[in-house]
Design a protein around this nucleic acid. Structure first.
Lengths: 233, 233
DNA sequence: AGCAACACGTGAGCC
DNA sequence: TGGCTCACGTGTTGC
């Protein structure tokens, strides 16, 4: 990284011919002197050509990156690279924790509601809501009911059980009529979903057989996905 | 994209001072002439400085990418970009069909049982079983019951509904006492799981209360994730 | 010696 | 007009 080039050599007499883009020798009286002083003509030419090829290689790769990452059609190089970086990070995140596949229930109760990073498709508007709690099969109907209250459509649910704990992950999307771009609407929806899950979590009996569930108009409990009786196995 | 720079201007007398890297005027007799001929000194200086900052920005992003993509520590720029490209492509591939995760129910009934490619964790022995059929909530208890008969532990279930169709994906693992390496045992287990799912599928009333199997789900039914309106009790 | 990869300054063009 | 991005040719360094 020699910052300062050592010296000038600014006035050798090699110039670029304006017509053909080829290197020629400038009209001068001291022909041999100049030639001996600089590199040979052929050397300079091949050098610049090699450099041109190198640039083309790099720019070609930049172009394919541009075609791979959306909305970068008219970005400058630096911004394009920045966008590539964030895309790689995002893809990595979702890939690691979904290709791995298993949703693993943790030991602490938890309610999480967040935008579902689609990563690829700029979908309408997705929420990823998860509830981690004790493995109580009877909470599933409650969950469903609570989520139905929100004006969202559940497109996917993922349930994992492990060692008496369970984690439920819901992916939901808003009605298309609502403006997905309105962040205020999003925040409101997510907040209501969060409250719904929270209420379900709070209603879980810590040890009793079954809870005094009054709220339900009809007694449609059950659908215990699996494991309706004993927790293990 | 003017390929050939238009002309030479090769012998203006601005040179780079070897010590400080600053632009100075070369010792010459025709001072004013030279200055008036080119841009002002300050202009040239700010220009080269801006260009330097631009390069630094780009190279900084390149470095970040290098840290993000493995095994690129000593690659040249072009190869690094090529590697970034292939990584983005690969991440995208797995992201669309795994992380994005939506299991999309198809129009044909289907039972599939296969070893669960873990991808990351070399687990004990996992089976991925899926059943695609009409969206009949009452099949869930049947499913559970049928799968309980097999000596497997369900670690994850994933349910997607779309346009009156549903797809259930189960990830199950065998008891640890059984030898996971025994391919014969595996085949046996998978076969029994397959039979179980098959039996559930066959039990689905094709037309209990409605026209059986019109080819197209022209009728958009509700997405009731696990609607329990019927079934037990 | 040659080749490859880099940083640099500079002209051109575009807001 | 200045600020910017880009492509170009060149000097330099390491193999």
């Amino acid at each position: 990284m020699g910052r300062g080039g050592s010296s000038s050599s600014s006035s050798n007499s090699l110039v670029l011919d304006s017509e053909r883009g080829e290197l020629v020798r400038a009209p001068t009286k001291l022909g041999q002197k100049v030639i001996s002083e600089g590199k040979s003509l052929a050397a300079l030419k091949s050098h610049s050509e090699a450099e041109r090829r190198r640039r083309e290689r790099i720019n070609s790769h930049l172009d394919t990156l541009r075609s791979l990452v959306p909305c970068t059609d008219k970005m400058d190089k630096a911004s394009l690279l920045a966008e590539v970086i964030s895309h790689v990070k995002e893809l990595k995140r979702t890939a690691v924790e979904a290709s791995k596949g298993f949703v693993i229930p943790m030991d602490i109760d938890e309610v999480r509601v967040e935008p579902h990073e689609d990563g690829v498709l700029g979908g309408p508007f997705c929420i990823r809501a998860s509830l981690c709690c004790d493995d109580r099969p009877e909470i599933l109907p409650n969950l469903r009911e609570a989520l139905e209250a929100c004006k969202l459509e559940t497109v996917k649910v993922e349930i994992s059980t492990l060692a008496g704990r369970m984690k439920n992950v819901f992916v939901m999307t808003g009605c298309k009529e609502e403006n997905s771009d309105d962040t205020e609407v999003r925040r409101l929806l997510m907040s209501s979903v969060h409250k719904a899950l929270r209420s379900v979590l709070d209603k879980i009996p810590t040890s009793s057989e079954f809870s005094p569930r009054i709220m339900l108009p009809n007694k449609r409990r059950r659908i215990s996905l699996f494991d309706s009786s004993s927790s293990s196995s």
